[in-house]
């Protein structure tokens, strides 16, 4: 009969963290930031079909980095929960906080459950308020911890550098074009030996929760043509 090796719980958690972090940092980054009329999501993503940014509900958006199949599964679970709740109660009863809590439970229990592989993802759940003061950006990490970010969140590889650029330039009262350009500049500032990169519209996925959109669903994607216009202005 063989005895399993003893692994200290601290070591076990650390190993699992390292594993998840390594997976996440391989991917391209995402920046979520507030602007004058709402919340803007900017991701480095060359694919037009495989999204990192998505609509969850009327005023709730979702962005993720890490393993595609895992965050896709979480995205669908979020949409299901939001739609189910909005149908059973009322559309106004679906909140970002509730979704962030549900995700935190799921990520946390998977992280501490020794028999499962932890999720290699990081998420942002952002909710648009009726007024700018009500805007919320929740950032969730692989272990289920939630941070209520003030004006922006950056996640993925090399986030320190990216967050630094955004922190210095952020202005929640600036128009959309300024916010997009700041995020794109930040995403290009990650560590590459040849210095900062310039990202073009064909390498980006951008969407907004737009407070001035006249329909109840505030989520809107920017097409590549619209994006080119914003970047070249």
């Amino acid at each position: 009969m063989s005895m399993p090796f003893y692994v200290a719980p601290e070591q076990q958690m650390k190993d699992r963290s390292d594993f998840a972090r390594k997976g996440i940092s391989r991917g391209r980054a995402v920046v979520v930031l507030r602007y004058r009329d709402g919340i803007c999501f900017v991701a480095e993503n060359r694919s037009l079909a495989l999204h990192k940014i998505s609509e969850i509900y009327d005023r709730i958006g979702f962005a993720a980095v890490g393993r595609y199949n895992e965050f896709e599964q979480l995205r669908i679970a979020g949409i299901q929960q939001a739609d189910m709740r909005g149908y059973a109660y009322d559309r106004s009863d679906v909140t970002g906080r509730m979704l962030a809590n549900a995700y935190a439970q799921l990520l946390g229990s998977s992280f501490s459950n020794g028999t499962e592989k932890p999720f290699e993802v990081e998420l942002v759940v952002a909710e648009l308020g009726d007024a700018p003061a009500g805007d919320q950006i929740y950032r969730l990490t692989y272990d289920g911890s939630v941070a209520d970010e003030e004006n922006f969140a950056a996640m993925g590889g090399a986030t320190e550098l990216i967050a630094d650029v955004v922190r210095r330039g952020i202005d929640p009262t600036a128009p959309l074009a300024d916010a997009v350009r700041l995020a794109v500049r930040a995403l290009g500032a990650d560590t590459s030996p040849s210095g900062p990169r310039t990202l073009g519209p064909e390498t980006l996925e951008v969407a907004v929760l737009d407070r001035v959109r006249p329909r109840p669903r505030k989520f809107r994607r920017l097409t590549r043509a619209q994006l080119a216009e914003v970047l070249n202005a």
Partner: peptide, 16 residues
């Protein structure tokens, strides 16, 4: 109608 609206929106969000 309420169910139908959610049905259409749900599909659109999940499938993109």
């Amino acid at each position: 109608v309420r169910l139908f609206r959610v049905e259409l929106e749900h599909y659109e969000k999940i499938e993109g």
